[in-house]
């Protein structure tokens, strides 16, 4: 038994190393000068340099990217969760012809790679005048998040006992009142999960902002990181500091919402 655990610890150690070393390379590299990095790429900071981080944090570029990403992610998440929960309510607690067909239509969306829709989507956004507009990214992202939102929420809402609904209706509540006052609050765990999923996928999205935004003042964080890297190829240390800082929101969010995220992903697979 002891021998097996040693193997386990060794493997765990290797995994942690392989995962963490690249992240440390970025974080620590930000504390070095480019000259230090060039002369010894795998070395430690010596002496520690604060300029890179300070420069990034005091320039408006980083904060603007952060704000753009946050704004788009909030709009996309709000739209997806609002419309998704309404649709999931209709699809889980009303009986009507075509219900399963509607549901299948939404689940089909899980199979569509965004790439397939991009060319027409781009032209469509151009026609709507939504290029260079945060909504031009947020609305399609919400649309692409709808399927997973509905697929997670529907069984959850369905599992809430009908007695509750009957009691509410007997007390004179309308069905929409039941939805708003009872069902939504009871669905809070599932709502949290789908919100986290929608938020993270919007936060990390690359292709759509790449096409919609030409003006770098509109860029989101992923675009900004890629742009910063290609514009400062000579200044590796600055790029590392910039990249390190742009990892922090996602990692913080992950630490705070880890249970929701992992639970949501594994839960949706286990069914």
């Amino acid at each position: 038994m002891a021998r097996r655990n040693t193997a386990g610890y060794l493997a765990a150690f290797a995994v942690v190393g392989i995962t963490v070393v690249p992240l440390l390379f970025v974080l620590l590299g930000g504390f070095r000068t480019t000259a230090q990095i060039n002369s010894s790429p795998a070395g430690l900071p010596g002496p520690w340099v604060w300029e890179n981080y300070r420069d990034v944090l005091t320039s408006p570029v980083f904060w603007r990217l952060l704000w753009n990403s946050a704004l788009i992610a909030v709009i996309a998440t709000t739209l997806a969760v609002a419309f998704g929960s309404m649709a999931a309510f209709a699809l889980s607690r009303y009986v009507f012809r075509g219900r399963e067909a509607f549901y299948t239509l939404f689940t089909l969306g899980l199979l569509f790679p965004l790439g397939v829709a991009t060319l027409p989507l781009y032209l469509w956004l151009r026609q709507l005048g939504l290029l260079e507009n945060p909504l031009g990214v947020a609305i399609p992202e919400a649309a692409f998040s709808l399927p997973i939102t509905i697929v997670i929420l529907r069984p959850f809402m369905h599992a809430i006992p009908t007695e509750l609904e009957d009691a509410a209706l007997l007390d004179g509540a309308a069905r929409l009142g039941f939805f708003w006052r009872i069902l939504l609050p009871l669905s809070r765990p599932a709502l949290a999960t789908v919100s986290v999923l929608a938020f993270v996928s919007s936060w990390n999205f690359f292709l759509l902002p790449l096409l919609v935004f030409n003006d770098s003042t509109n860029f989101t964080l992923p675009l900004g990181v890629a742009m910063f890297q290609s514009e400062h190829t000579q200044d590796t240390a600055k790029v590392l500091a910039f990249t390190a800082l742009s990892m922090i929101p996602a990692l913080t969010f992950f630490v705070l919402a880890e249970r929701r995220m992992v639970g949501g992903l594994t839960g949706s697979v286990k069914g």
Binding site: L105, T118, P120, A143
Partner: peptide, 24 residues
Amino acid sequence: ELALLLGPGLLLFAGFVLVPICVA
């Protein structure tokens, strides 16, 4: 009620996922 609940989601989904794919 159904139109109110399903409508926005369907519109969003059709307008920005289904129709672009068919148009492709």
